[in-house]
Lab assay of single mutants.
Amino acid sequence: DESNKPILLPNESQSFERSVQLLDQIPSYDTHKIAVLYVGEGQSNSELAILSNEHGSYRYTEFLTGLGRLIELKDCQPDKVYLGGLDVCGEDGQFTYCWHDDIMQAVFHIATLMPTKDVDKHRCDKKRHLGNDFVSIVYNDSGEDFKLGTIKGQFNFVHVIVTPLDYECNLVSLQCRKDMEGLVDTSVAKIVSDRNLPFVARQMALHANMASQVHHSRSNPTDIYPSKWIARLRHIKRLRQRICEEAAYSNPSLPLVHPPSHSKAPAQTPAEPTPGYEVGQRKRLISSVEDFTE
């Protein structure tokens, strides 16, 4: 099969070098950035008060330690540790928490760990991170309901609301924008112990962030949302095809390698009803078989 044979790379090609550099910018793992907010007593309706908090309760602090690993920003190499735009020179604080497994990295933009500057009256330095995160974990210690939209931002799609209760338990629920209701189930609340709260809140936030990324990708319907490693695979396959075309153009005697095509017509299947918005969006999480067989 010609399409699977190794090909020689061009010795000097600026377009090839640019493509390789672009490939280096696509990590081999999925990345997520999640905002974390603490809401104190009497702050449920005040964005400024929430963003001005420099610490929270003892249970909130224990919750943070379970979310991930504490890292010092100045020691991080952005090409190895995903920071979601946090500055490593102290502009966004000294520490944050991050978490990773074999296929993804997540960083938490924690408002109480970011510096509260006197010259920044409206807390814009914090909002440029927190307001651009799709998902926020809100530790609501106010005793009042927290409403979506209290923290203004164009991309605040989903809130994971943590409400501490007695007996070391917590109520965990989801809020989302109306255009996200087909992807996020907000109907079920959970009672979770303090011990298990970081794991549950983190998983709910990661799932909500993946759904938000799919939702946000609708602005470019021709580019369905893939995982990062599938995006790398697609980029490599496009690069291979372009090299083959350039080689055939410079030397017409060489065969032009095309991806294999299936001449056999697909079997006719009964027509199915058109899937609704929710089903269609969830299918976009699934990769096409052509990603692996071309």
Rank of each mutant, 00 (worst) to 15 (best):
D1C: 10
D1W: 14
E2W: 09
E2R: 09
E2C: 10
S3L: 07
N4F: 12
N4C: 15
P6I: 04
L8E: 15
L9Y: 09
P10T: 12
P10E: 15
N11E: 13
N11W: 05
E12H: 06
E12C: 07
E12D: 09
E12G: 08
E12F: 06
S13P: 08
S13V: 09
F16L: 13
E17I: 13
E17L: 11
E17T: 08
R18G: 10
R18S: 13
R18E: 15
S19C: 15
S19V: 12
V20F: 09
L22D: 15
L23F: 05
L23Q: 08
L23N: 09
D24N: 06
Q25S: 11
Q25N: 11
Q25G: 06
Y29C: 06
T31Y: 11
H32M: 13
K33N: 15
A35C: 04
A35Q: 05
V36P: 00
L37V: 07
Y38G: 01
Y38N: 00
Y38T: 00
V39W: 01
V39T: 01
G40M: 02
G40W: 01
Q43P: 01
S44L: 03
E47H: 03
L48T: 14
I50Y: 03
I50N: 02
S52G: 08
H55I: 07
H55K: 04
G56I: 01
G56P: 02
S57E: 01
S57G: 03
S57N: 03
Y58P: 09
T61Q: 09
T61A: 06
T61W: 06
F63G: 00
F63W: 01
L64Q: 01
L64F: 05
T65Y: 06
G66C: 02
L67E: 00
L67V: 01
G68L: 04
G68H: 04
I71R: 08
D75N: 14
P78C: 09
D79K: 06
L83H: 14
G84V: 03
L86H: 14
D87L: 01
D87N: 12
D87W: 01
D87A: 06
V88A: 09
V88T: 14
C89V: 07
C89I: 05
G90L: 05
G90N: 11
G90E: 12
G90A: 08
D92C: 05
D92W: 06
G93P: 14
Q94E: 10
Q94T: 11
Q94A: 09
Q94P: 10
F95E: 05
T96A: 11
Y97K: 04
C98V: 15
C98Q: 12
H100D: 14
H100Q: 14
M104E: 15
M104T: 14
Q105M: 12
A106L: 12
V107M: 05
V107D: 07
V107W: 08
V107P: 02
F108L: 01
H109S: 03
H109Q: 04
H109D: 05
A111R: 03
T112S: 03
T112P: 03
M114W: 03
P115G: 04
T116E: 06
T116F: 07
D118Y: 09
K121V: 14
H122P: 08
H122S: 14
R123M: 15
D125F: 13
K126M: 05
K127P: 04
R128T: 09
R128C: 05
L130T: 08
L130W: 03
L130M: 09
N132D: 12
N132P: 04
F134K: 03
F134P: 02
I137N: 00
V138A: 01
Y139E: 00
Y139C: 00
Y139D: 00
N140G: 00
D141T: 01
D141W: 00
E144R: 05
D145T: 08
D145C: 04
F146K: 00
K147P: 11
K147E: 10
L148T: 15
I151H: 02
I151V: 13
I151N: 02
I151G: 03
K152P: 11
K152G: 13
G153S: 10
Q154E: 15
Q154W: 10
Q154C: 14
F155V: 06
F155G: 15
N156H: 07
F157K: 12
V158C: 09
V160D: 00
T163G: 01
P164C: 01
L165F: 03
D166K: 02
D166W: 01
C169R: 03
N170S: 12
N170C: 05
L171G: 02
L171S: 04
V172E: 00
V172N: 00
S173T: 08
S173K: 10
S173W: 04
L174K: 02
C176S: 04
C176F: 03
C176R: 02
K178S: 13
D179A: 07
M180S: 01
M180H: 02
D185V: 02
A189Y: 10
A189F: 11
K190L: 14
K190D: 02
I191E: 04
V192Y: 03
S193R: 01
D194C: 00
D194L: 00
R195N: 07
R195H: 09
L197E: 00
L197K: 00
P198Q: 00
F199V: 03
F199N: 02
V200K: 00
V200S: 01
A201E: 00
R202G: 08
Q203P: 01
Q203V: 09
M204R: 01
L206K: 00
L206E: 01
L206V: 10
A208G: 03
A208E: 00
N209W: 01
N209V: 06
N209S: 13
M210L: 09
S212Y: 04
H215V: 14
S217L: 06
S217K: 05
R218W: 07
S219D: 13
P221F: 04
T222V: 07
D223P: 06
D223V: 06
P226V: 06
S227T: 13
S227A: 07
W229K: 07
W229A: 12
R232G: 13
L233Y: 10
R234D: 14
H235E: 15
K237I: 15
R238W: 11
I243F: 12
I243M: 13
C244W: 14
C244Y: 09
E245A: 08
A248G: 07
A248Y: 06
S250M: 12
N251F: 12
N251M: 13
N251Y: 13
L254Y: 14
P255R: 06
P255D: 12
L256P: 15
V257S: 07
V257Y: 10
P259A: 11
P259S: 13
S261L: 08
H262D: 15
H262A: 14
S263H: 10
S263C: 07
K264T: 15
K264S: 14
P266F: 09
P266S: 13
A267D: 14
Q268E: 13
Q268I: 11
P270F: 08
A271T: 09
A271F: 11
P273E: 13
T274N: 11
T274W: 09
P275I: 09
P275K: 08
Y277D: 14
Y277F: 12
E278S: 08
E278F: 06
V279L: 09
V279M: 11
Q281F: 08
R282Q: 12
R282I: 08
K283L: 09
K283W: 05
K283F: 09
V289A: 13
V289L: 13
F292H: 13
F292K: 15
F292R: 14
T293A: 10
T293K: 09
